[in-house]
Design a protein around this nucleic acid. Structure first.
Lengths: 194, 194
DNA sequence: TTTTTTTCTTGATTTAAATCAATGAAAAAG
DNA sequence: CTTTTTCATTGATTTAAATCAAGAAAAAAA
């Protein structure tokens, strides 16, 4: 089926699979379509499955006394979920919702556990996935601590030009830890000096 | 040998090993003793090995126009290294040095690669290690974006009381993204309201 | 011990970003 | 097409933290 082509394309780039392995793993996947502005996960729920974004976009965020703080965006080819909640089956600390109509490839916790036991290549895929995410997050955190706002925004634009096109600016401000007003002023300053 | 007891104690808590497996893995480990204030890694070098802290303490940090920004502390039982540099063999973007006399259990890149190929339990151990580090870092980054300084400091003290005892305050300030003066004032305010 | 270096605190001032407030533009809904 | 809602910009003001500066306390070195 073509439904999981994109998922396996990404998988094969990390760990090449035979046709048989691909078919085995495919039996553990399910597809879910969602409209815009729908919750994939709410704080307090258990994150029952981890999602690969086939189409559309989502955001993961926390709410701290009324303020949303966006932790992550996820567009086509990315994965998203509350990893701690998913692995420990404890209540999630993050909200996840769609920003556009989306199509997700889901891996349930039970499926994840069984594949870890039975399919070494799945473990390798998952290890590489988390390793990449960890390295990227460390870079981002490091930038948050050490770079001025202008450079952090420029880095974001350079690294994720697609997201800049598809996501409202006040959400990018939230992701960078700024207010919308501040980001607007930063952008103004940057376009002037260019 | 008792030299690697602590390393394998931590390993076994994640993934139980037989005596034989332990002996196999041990052949890939080396021990390194370091004095205080010695570099384990300098920015620009390749991170040749990943370190498990048997004894002592280290910090990982970047320098941005003269300012140090501490990314991570590592005390007994923790691991430290520039993961991107280690895995890709590209120049490191972080400095790592000892804060006290230290003893490290080292895993070279070649050893790491071979163990990943030959010992499934090592892959599982490493996957769990990185997964834990990723979850912890995400929590920390989320707190940096959303919590006021006071709460972030209290969280740090609660989570790492040992580090608070052993590390100078200005380094904790750096870890939290503050100046030493600001942390001093935060602490003053907190002791008053207690 | 005495001296030197590092660390921590406190005060005064500056600066960057948040907040408050309003308006216009764009997008979505009717 | 009109109305409503969301989004982005700009200005004025406030606030939190950085910076600058100095001195005290603690730790390390002589």
């Amino acid at each position: 089926m073509a439904l999981y082509d994109f998922y396996f394309q990404q998988f094969n780039e990390k760990v090449p699979l035979t046709k048989e392995e691909q078919e085995q793993i495919q039996t553990y996947l399910t597809l879910r379509k969602m409209g815009k502005k729908q919750y994939f996960l709410q704080e307090g729920e258990v994150c029952k499955s981890y999602a690969f974004v086939n189409k559309g976009s989502l955001r993961k965020y926390s709410i701290e006394n009324g303020n949303e703080h966006i932790i992550q965006f996820a567009i086509e080819g990315w994965t998203v979920g509350d990893l701690l909640s998913f692995l420990s089956e404890e209540p999630a600390t993050y909200h996840i919702d769609t920003l556009e109509d989306s199509e997700l490839v889901l891996m349930s916790k039970a499926a994840h556990d069984e594949l870890l036991r039975t399919q070494p290549k799945y473990e390798t895929y998952f290890r590489l996935l988390i390793t990449g995410a960890y390295i990227a997050l460390q870079r981002r955190h490091s930038f948050t601590l050490s770079l001025p706002v202008e450079q952090r925004y420029m880095d974001f634009v350079e690294k994720y030009p697609e997201i800049v096109q598809r996501v409202p600016q006040h959400m990018i401000a939230s992701y960078l830890g700024l207010t919308p007003e501040t980001l607007s002023r930063v952008r103004k300053k940057l376009t002037k000096h260019k």
